[in-house]
Each structure stands twice: as C-alpha cells, then as structure tokens.
C-alpha cells in the first residue's frame, strides 16, 4: 500500500478535522487498504500559507489550502469568500464544488500550482458576538471595535466599525478586557473558544460564508495512481462535501441549542437583522465584487461568467434543498 501525507494548518479538533479523518478511513476501506493517510496537524509540517506551494512541490501529498492566504494565485477560489445571500453549508459547498469541477478558469488555476482539486469545505455561516450592547441594526455597528475577517471585516469597517486585528485565539481575552466590542465568529466556535463566558449578545447575520477552502492533492501523486484509485478519490471527494456539510450544520445547531440552554450558566441572547438591513449588508459587498471581477479580468479569467455561474449553482442547490431536503434526509 501507499501512505499519503496530509498537511493541515489547524489542530485536529472539531468538525472539519473529524471529517478529514472520516475521509482517511473511507479511503482505506474503499481501496482495501491500498491507500492510507498520515495526518500532520497544526502546521507542524507546513504552515497554512505555505501549503499550496508545498503540496505542489511534493513536501506533502495532500492537504488544505485557503484562498485568502494567497489571493494572487488563488484568485478564482476567493470568489467563494465574497458575501452572498446563501449561508446554508450544504447549498454553498455543493455549489462551490460543482463550480470548481466545471469552470475552466478555476481548473487552470489549480493546474498552474500542480494541484488536483479533491473537495471543498466552508468555515460555515458568519455571525457576530458582542459584549454589552447587542447589534440589532446595522446602525449599531458604528463606533464598535470589531475583529473581522476578510472582505467581511472590510465591510464592517465601511459600516463604521473600528477594526481591531487579532487571531481568533485571542478574541476571548479581547472581549474580556473590552479591547473588542464584537468579534466575527462561526456558531460552533463560540462554545469551542468559550466566548459565552465573556460576551453574551449574538447576532445571526445570515450573510454568506467563507468558501475558499479546498482540499488538494499533488498533481503528480494523483496522476501516478491507477485509474481505479483516481475514481475512488473523486467519488470520495464528492461524498466528503455532503458528509462535512451534514456534520457542520449539525454542529452549529447543537452549539446554538447549547448556548440558548445556558447549561454552563452563561445565557446568550440571539438577535437577527431586519430584511431591509440584510439587503443593505449584501449591497455593501458590491464594491468588493467589482474589485474581484476587475482583478479576474486582469488575470485573464472571465470573472463575470464565473460569478454568474456561481450564483446559478447556488440557486440550483438552494432550490433542490427546498424541494427535496438534504441528501442525508432523503
């Protein structure tokens, strides 16, 4: 058998890591033990930013790449990081998966890095957690010190927030001391980082999700596999997207239920924005979409077509979800 090294910049905890281990188990089973995976967590092998070049060069066989760390050579992939009205983890990851599989510009982008695309995931829905005054309307964001990520952070700034840069690991201390009023966060991450101990106002923004996260394999390693194993990996990649979406959605729902139940004595209040405010929030991302498209044209990609295709795919899977439900409930 052959052992593939897998590099991941994050620790081996949480839904995404468990799903990756599921991938490894499945791969071993489906290839009758011919292919095995050896994980290197927490950036011990390659730091997250160095992953695409490192995997492309063969320092690891496969692993996770994030578009936002290398926006130049993952420009197409970072389309997934722009806000949309679709936040459901299954709808958004499925749409992204099909986009990468079928869009020529995106395929070229991975080819150039000597990478084979396997599957994609999402950081899941973007929320805001605040200490003290909750954010009930977009007006409330004005003057608050906010830790934001990516384009979302830029839009918070446009809406009048003061950006404060720190890692998610420091946001506990930041909120505790008052250095932060609010932090951009994912639902599951609130209990994971115990943020409910120091902040209790959660606003569900329902404003898209970061989708520029892909699992890739060194192209040479992939090409050297027999066709039968390639087919297994391709199918498993697709299955992985569903598997991850199911677990991630469940994880967020469990986290929210736990926060509302306040089992640890920390009560969390949930807020939502009005439909008008949601509309405004989406409009605020307009300039960044235009910026993305201009850069895409510069790189020789048909940015407008890619964006159009992406929106159509999002709509397609949202319709499928509404009519037929999730695949795991069918």
């Amino acid at each position: 058998g052959k052992t593939l090294t897998w590099t991941d910049g994050s620790p081996n905890r949480g839904t995404r890591a468990e799903a990756s281990m599921w991938f490894a188990d499945q791969l071993e089973q489906r290839t009758n033990g011919d292919l095995k995976i050896e994980f290197h967590w927490g950036g011990a092998l390659l730091k997250a930013k160095a992953a695409p070049k490192g995997i492309g060069a063969g320092a690891a066989d496969m692993g996770l790449v994030l578009g936002v760390y290398n926006p130049k050579f993952h420009h197409g992939l970072t389309l997934g990081d722009l806000p949309t009205q679709y936040s459901d983890p299954w709808v958004s990851t499925r749409a992204m998966y099909e986009l990468i599989q079928t869009n020529k510009d995106l395929q070229d982008e991975f080819d150039k890095l000597n990478l084979q695309f396997i599957a994609n995931v999402t950081a899941t829905e973007i929320q805001l957690i605040c200490k003290g005054d909750p954010v009930r309307t977009l007006e409330d964001i004005k003057g608050k010190k906010v830790r934001g990520i990516g384009v979302y952070g830029k839009i918070f700034k446009d809406l009048g927030a003061t950006p404060v840069s720190m890692t998610v690991y420091k946001s506990y201390q930041g909120l505790d001391t008052g250095l932060l009023d609010c932090s951009q966060i994912y639902t599951y991450a609130i209990p994971a980082f115990k943020l409910q101990e120091v902040a209790s106002e959660v606003t569900l923004l329902d404003w898209g999700a970061l989708l520029g996260l892909a699992y890739v394999m060194n192209k040479d390693t992939y090409e050297a596999l027999p066709q039968e194993q390639k087919d297994i990996i391709n199918q498993l990649g697709s299955d992985y997207v569903d598997h991850f979406a199911e677990k991630a959605r469940q994880g967020n729902m469990d986290a929210l239920a736990e926060l509302e139940k306040a089992a640890d004595g920390n009560k969390v209040n949930i807020h939502t924005l009005s439909p008008a405010d949601k509309e405004k929030l989406l409009e605020a991302s307009g300039p960044y979409l235009a910026e993305w498209q201009a850069e895409a044209e510069k790189l020789g990609m048909d940015g407008a077509a890619m964006h159009k295709q992406f929106l159509a795919l999002l709509k397609k899977y949202e319709d499928e979800r509404l009519s037929a439900g999730y695949p795991w409930t069918r």
Partner: peptide
Amino acid sequence: RAVYPTMALISSNVFEFLHSYP
C-alpha cells in the same frame, strides 16, 4: 526528485515562522 519538497519544506518553514505578528 527529493530536492523540491526539501526546499519547499525548509524555506517555507523558516520564512513563515519569522513572518509573525505575535
């Protein structure tokens, strides 16, 4: 064939380690 992965691992680790805000 061993040169490229070695270089990728060595130089990226050195650079990314130092390229740190904390």
